[in-house]
Every structure is written in C-alpha cells, then in structure tokens.
Design a protein around this nucleic acid. Structure first.
Length: 581
RNA sequence: GCACCGAUGGUCUAGUGGCUAUGACUUUAGCCUUCCAAGCUAAUAACUCGGGUUCAAAUCCCGAUCGGUGCACCA
C-alpha cells in the first residue's frame, strides 16, 4: 500500500530532487542531499521568500557563521536548556528523563546538574519504572553538535541550532544600519543543526536543515502594522486555543481575529498573512493549511503569542512548517545580560516631556577632606535618600556599621524640572521562522497528482504530474522537436538559445516519442513544453503545451522568450499566450 | 536509545544452500515516427555492509547500517 509519502519520495529520488546523503557509504539518518532538480527548486522557494521578506518588507538579509561561540548559546539558553538529563536502566536499557523521575522528591528538578540528579536517584533508591532495575548515572544529552575552535580544544563552539541568534547578536550593528529607527528587521536563510536522537520521517526531521527566519524588532508599545489594512481581509484557517479546546478550526479574516483578541495584535496578524501568501505562492494547498495557536502551557513563558503554520500531509497528519512568535524582549535581554552590553533603542518623544526630578548634590569640597576614603560611598548613600530624609538639621547615615553624621550644609538638594526628550526601550521581537525542507516536502506532496489519462481504445494509464507553480518549477520550459530531423532540430536549438538568454532554465529533449517526452516533463513539473513541427518551417510558429491541462496554443517563435517569461512571472494566462490549437 | 518488521539493477519485482541471479518498466545508442509514455534492434545495470557456519551463502546464524512502525525524545 503505497501512500502518498512513498510515491512522492520515490519520484523525488528517481528524478533527482532528494537523495539520502552518503548513500555510497550506506547512508546516515537525518541527512538529505538536494539533487539537481531539488536544489533548483529549493533556490526558487528561497528566492520567493526573499521577494516577500527582503524586497517587499525591507528586512535585509544577513549571513552569520553556522558555528557559534559558547557565550551565544549560554545566552540563548541552548547550552543549559537544549539538552535533557537521561538515565538508562542497567537491566532493560530503557532511557528515562532523570528530572521526570524525581519530580515527586524535589521541587525544582530542572535546575539540578547531572551529578546531583544521580545522587538523588541513588539516595532515594529510585528504580526503573519499567522493570524495577537499577538506574545508571545521569548524563546530559545536548541536541547541539559541539566542536572546538582552534587547536587545543580550549574554546567550545557549537553548530547553531537555529539561525535566529545571528540576528540578535548583530543587534547593535543592525540598529545603526537602520539608523536607530523602529521597527526594523533582519533575515537569514541558512543551515541549522540539531543532533536529533532519532530522526525519522524523511526530510521532516533532519539533523542538518535549512531555516529562513526573520527577526523583526518593534516598539513594545505599538504593535500595530502600517500595512495592516492591505491584508486584513485575508481569511485564514485558524486553529486557536479555544478552537483546539473545542476540537475545530475556523475560517476567519485576520481583521476579525485581531479585533476579537484571538491573534494578539496587528503585527502578528500581518506576519500570518505574509506566511499564508508565501506558502500558497510556492505550492502549498490553501485547503491543507492551517494556523495553530500554541496552547498556554506549550508556549515559552516569555512569549506573548505564538502560531504555527501547519500543513496537512497524507502520512504524518498536520506538520508544523512555520512558527510565528512574539518573543517579547526575552532574547535581547538575555544577550544584554550575558554580554553586559545594553541592547536597547532610544526612542524620542514627539514633544519633550517635562519631568520633575529630585536631585541631591553632596558638597565634595567638604565631604572629601573630612571623610577621605569613605567620601565616595557617603556621597552615593546621600544621593539615594528621599527628600524627607534630608529635611532634618543633620543627616544620619550608617556606613559599614558605623554611624556617620553629616551637616546639612554639606549637602544641597533641590527639585528640578527637566525636559526629557525620549526614553530607552528594549524592542520586542516578532519571529517568523520557516522550515524550508519541510515546506519543500509539503509542496511536493501537494503538487503531486496521479490522474487517469485514458485515450480511446487504450487501457488505463496513469499520468504523474507535479503541478508546481511555474515560478518555483526547477525546469521552466522544455523544447521538443517533434521528430529527430535536422530541419526541426535546428529551430528548436535556436529557441533554446533565446530562452536561456532570457534566464529561463530549459530542457532540450529529442529522444523517443513526443508523448513520452511530455510525460517525463510532467513528472518533474515543467510547466510549459514548446514543440517545433513542420508548420514552424512554414509560418515561424511553435506550439506551447500547458502541463496542467495538456492543452496547446500556437504562438510565434520570434518572441517566444518574452511570451514564456510572461507566463512564468507575469501572470499571463495560458489562453493569452497564443491561438488555440 | 529500546522493541518488532524489512533491505535483490534507476524503479517495481522473481527466486532459493549448488552452473552464467528472473522479469517488467526506465535509461542509452541506432532505426522508425507529423503531438501525449506500450513500434523495431541492441546495450548498460542489482543480491546493504562486516563476521560466522558450510565443499559451497544473495539464501542459514550473529552484528552493524539504512528504512518503516510503536515507545522514548523532539517542535
């Protein structure tokens, strides 16, 4: 019983989209190669993403190293939190989460080290829950690939488990690049690595995978989006927290969802819209797409709201392909703490605000000679005092347990009204994060069709068609001389040249019967096939065949390149491309 | 990581302790051929890997790898 996954993967392997990596040496789980067609498809999908996020939204792309230093992942929490303490039963060899086993014994098991966990397990005589056997020493299994930088292994490095950190770490530079204005965003498309314990499900769970992520830094007080109106009418299939409790998703416009408080704010709603447009544009079926909100207990504690785009697959059910989160100021704060650098934006007010401030000015000319080494600390203590504490004739302070009396004349204080021109704020981060490999699989599956192509008097014959959007199809046009004869081959070769000059990836094929060649191209998703026949020699026209309908039009050979470009990129309909045949 | 199942040309598959390992499709070359994979001729191409048993292993046994499923883990 070949399910769709098998059919799609079989086709992908056979025709050069996806291959198991290292097959020559037996292969290794969790790694896939993109073959000639797969790599091209992936580039086109990535470029569509660029078109939306980089060109249209202006979130410039950066490229940070795939190896990160330890500080980065200490700040991000991956060193401490991206691992699980495991213990194995010595008897039945079952592995367990050590912190889960001692949940009833200690209050905060996730804060303990592996050694401490081992000790607690031994002390409390905790046995294997399966067979009652003795449990082995607890070890941390971290999902990051570790390496060392430079010789000697002194400096730890990690292959990045997500591309996001690159944008956070470059925050100060990015802020300057965008001339200190919020909102701004940066994007990155690249590899990320996770040493999965047991990767399965083909390209759905990989140890090396491609992410496309945007980190958009916004003003926490204003989460509206200037272009919200443009997308507010888009109707999405939303599987909200309430919907999940009720067990059903609902179709709703983004406007309604934001107004009803289902989507936290406009900016997140806008990101959902961009995600929807992207996925549908590259070939995901809109009716097999939904947005699922994270449940409260599933969401990271710092997240304000989080939605996953999920696609329906034949074998795996709903698969998460995109995560869109409002991560608030968590990441910037974490890196600020780790790096001891302020990561914030100065936001000027429209009008300066008058602010009343109480200032204390210790007279160092008196305090200095009198208290010498203690003077500075006394001054600081004085500055911390409130107006009523300074109002007496003398002021008493305790410094190092010693009572010190200060004459009123040694301190001046006053209320001043100052103009404040703005304030420093830590931006919130909106993060749409795309799993490109999962998206590639999704669109392959959603584009894959087997249809009965029954000709009169013939047996049932299935036609396999990959209905890829022309924009992402790896091969964009096939050029086929109807017969292998010089007088037809020559013009066909001219057409190939014209198309290539226009940047179209074209396949030339003159082998076997025309039907077979059409089928071959159907299978790899080539949207248009151009055929040269004897009429070409008479009037300079060729036929263009549409992959999806198998219909043909006849068009002029001279402007074939413009014509095909318009079909692929210009939204020209097939009927407009020439005369009906 | 544990348990169960599986692995034969590019794909699907026959086979079983014993000559040169089936067949189909695909592919390639040539012929033929005026639009949707089935015309003719020829060619290429496989027993996952390592060890063991045996005169002899693709076949039996053990282990590894990869794939599938369940558990665990993960998002």
């Amino acid at each position: 019983m070949a399910d769709k996954y098998e059919q799609v993967i079989e086709l992908a392997k056979r025709r050069g989209f996806l291959w198991n990596s290292f097959e020559l040496y037996g292969g290794t789980a969790g790694f896939y190669d993109y073959g000639p067609l797969g790599a091209m498809l992936k580039r086109r999908v990535e470029n569509t993403w660029r078109d939306i996020f980089v060109i249209n939204e202006g979130y410039y792309e950066i490229e940070a190293p795939t190896i990160g230093i330890e500080d980065v992942f200490i700040a991000s929490g991956h060193v401490g939190g991206f691992s699980d303490p495991l213990t194995e039963c010595q008897k039945c060899h079952e592995a367990f989460r050590a912190d889960h086993l001692i949940k009833d014994v200690v209050d905060n098991p996730d804060t303990l080290s592996a050694d401490e966990l081992t000790e607690i397990i031994n002390k409390n005589n905790i046995k294997c829950p399966e067979c009652g056997g003795k449990l082995g020493a607890v070890y941390e299994f971290n999902l990051m690939f570790k390496t060392s930088i430079g010789p000697g292994g002194k400096r730890a490095g990690y292959l990045r488990p997500e591309t996001a950190q690159g944008m956070f770490v470059d925050f100060p530079r990015l802020l300057k690049f965008y001339r200190d204005h919020l909102p701004f965003g940066a994007t990155q498309i690249g590899k990320a690595y996770r040493n999965e314990i047991s990767p399965r499900q083909g390209v759905i769970r990989l140890r090396e995978f491609t992410q496309a992520e945007a980190e958009i830094f916004i003003d926490p007080r204003d989460k509206t989006h200037p272009k919200f109106k443009e997308i507010s009418g888009i109707v999405l299939n939303l599987y909200s927290q309430a919907g999940q409790a009720a067990g059903e998703s609902q179709k709703m416009s983004i406007k309604e969802a934001v107004a009803g408080g289902i989507i936290a704010h406009e900016f997140l709603g806008y990101c959902l819209a961009m995600t929807y447009r992207f996925l549908v544009r590259v070939g995901v079926s809109a009716d097999k797409l939904r947005f699922r909100q994270h449940m409260k207990d599933e969401m990271a504690h710092y997240a304000a709201d989080c939605w996953d785009a999920e696609i329906l697959s034949d074998r795996f059910g709903w698969v998460e392909v995109v995560g869109i989160a409002d991560r608030t100021d968590y990441d910037l704060k974490a890196h600020a703490k780790q790096s001891e650098t302020e990561l914030a934006v100065y936001v000027p007010y429209d009008k300066p605000k008058p602010i009343e401030r109480f200032t204390v000015k210790p007279n160092m000319g008196i305090l200095g000679p009198k208290f010498k080494g203690k003077a500075a600390r006394i001054a600081n203590a004085l500055k911390a005092l409130k107006p009523e504490e300074l109002s007496g004739d003398v002021i008493e302070l305790i410094i190092d347990g010693e009572k010190i009396t200060i004459e009123k004349s040694s301190v001046a204080f006053e209320k001043v009204t100052e103009e404040v021109h703005g304030e420093t704020i830590i931006p919130h981060v909106i993060e749409p994060s795309f799993g490109i490999d999962r998206i590639i699989y999704s669109l392959l599956e959603h584009s894959y069709f087997e249809e009965e192509a029954v000709e009169e008097g013939e047996e049932d014959k299935t036609r396999i068609v990959l209905r890829l959007p022309p924009e992402v199809a790896p091969v964009q046009a096939a050029v086929l001389p109807l017969l292998t004869r010089d007088e037809l081959v020559k013009p066909a070769e001219d057409i190939v040249k014209m198309l290539r000059k226009a940047g179209i990836l074209v396949a030339y094929d003159d082998s076997g019967t025309i039907g077979r060649r059409y089928r071959r191209n159907d299978e790899i998703g080539t949207p248009y096939s151009i055929t040269v026949d004897y009429q070409t020699l008479e009037d300079g026209s060729v036929t263009i065949r549409d992959r999806d309908t198998m219909k043909q039009v006849r068009a002029s050979m001279n402007d074939i390149a413009d014509n095909v470009c318009d079909l692929i990129y210009g939204g020209k309909s097939f009927e407009e491309a020439g005369r009906k045949v």
